[in-house]
Amino acid sequence: MSVRIDIAGLRPEGVAVVPSPLAELGMALHALSEPGHHPGLQGWVTGVTARLDSHLADRMCEADFLWRTTYSDLFLPFAGIPGALPGETLAEELDLVDKLTDEQFVDAALEFTCVPAYDAQAPFILSDPAERRRVLEVAAARGPGPVRFTRRLLDDPPSVRAWLRRFLEECDEAVFRGTWPRLRHQLAADARHKTELLRRKGLGEALAAVSPAVTLDEAAERITVDKLSEGRAATTGGTLLLVPTSLGWPHLNVLYRHGWQPVLHYPVGSPELASPPSVEQLTLRMTALSHPVRMRICRHLARSVYTTGELAQVHGLTAPEVSRHLGVLKKAGLVTTRRRGRYVLHQLDVTVVARLGSDFLEGILR
């Protein structure tokens, strides 16, 4: 499985490596919401959380699915504007968010509703009653907060834009402003290094330095990103953006939304994972994850909670088939389940999964 980016006609000057303060702020919010995804940032997360104003912490819960369950493309708004690049300041990038059309803004904000055609033309949510009902139904499975946000967004996009801008400005002041100067220098240095590789050795070498999971097939004029997802994009506007992140490890994100310019949002650091449990439990967990269908199910469950019916629809399986796979994952202690009203929600325990590599090494060296 992979995401492919067709680069036919892409000229060397169309590739840019540029840090983004808004993208990094989004990763900061993600790390604060999902510290289990980022074991190397536990000290930073603990320090920030201890200083966080309780009122702002409560407000973070209002729309945390924009950076927690998915990483919204709203944090990469330049990709939706032809010819745009990341801004040097957060204010410049928030201005770019304001330049997105209402349809672009709503579509990107509702990515958590499992938009079925991310890389293809989808129905316009604001003007298609059936699509509106669908996204509200999916939001309902995630609780009252997502439903309220979705209704408000569908009814009045401008007010949500204004709310989001004010909120991100507050987060910048409280969470990010003291961290960004240090990160900016690190990301700028990485961008200079990748730009020099592009100039001296070409796109293939630069992409290899981005991640071993990113490869270039020059004959096919295609970039392939090895991920547990399928997707396709094209550099139709003649631009490919590489955006480094320091807080984002281990996430290698690919923006391949239909009609937007593709973006590789890649980590520049690789903190080591922590260690723990028993060989018997480790064997059970690795066996549970060895099935390709369960791996694909885990990809979704790592980003959000899902019902059995939603997973069946996404993967083209029957509900009993999905239930059997979930049973194996739950027996291995990899998936947690809770009930919300008439919905039974499943989610991956990312802390347990994050420890598997170090657990395996400890097991074979014991």
Rank of each mutant, 00 (worst) to 15 (best):
R340I: 11
L52M: 12
P244A: 06
V135C: 02
D53Q: 06
L255G: 11
L348H: 07
V147E: 05
A188E: 15
T307H: 08
T351P: 01
A117F: 12
G9P: 03
H291W: 10
R165P: 05
E205V: 14
L25V: 01
P146H: 02
L74R: 02
H325A: 05
R192W: 11
T69H: 07
R232S: 15
F167D: 01
V147W: 00
L289G: 04
S33Y: 02
G238W: 09
A23S: 13
R294C: 10
L136K: 02
G178R: 01
L96A: 09
G178P: 05
A79K: 02
G327Y: 07
T308F: 05
G341T: 06
T70I: 12
Y118T: 10
L240S: 06
W163A: 05
K201R: 15
S270H: 13
I297D: 10
A274T: 14
T150W: 02
E93H: 03
G204E: 15
L94F: 00
V314K: 12
R132D: 09
L247W: 07
R199Q: 15
A140D: 13
L273D: 14
Q261Y: 09
P158C: 08
E205Y: 04
F167R: 04
A206I: 07
P212F: 06
V268D: 05
D217M: 08
D226A: 15
L110C: 07
P39T: 04
F124V: 14
G47F: 00
W67G: 00
P123D: 04
E218F: 06
E169K: 03
E321G: 11
I7V: 14
T307L: 09
Q261F: 03
P244Y: 08
D217Q: 04
R152K: 09
H251T: 13
E170G: 03
G316H: 08
D107F: 12
L345D: 07
S278A: 15
Y266F: 15
T195E: 10
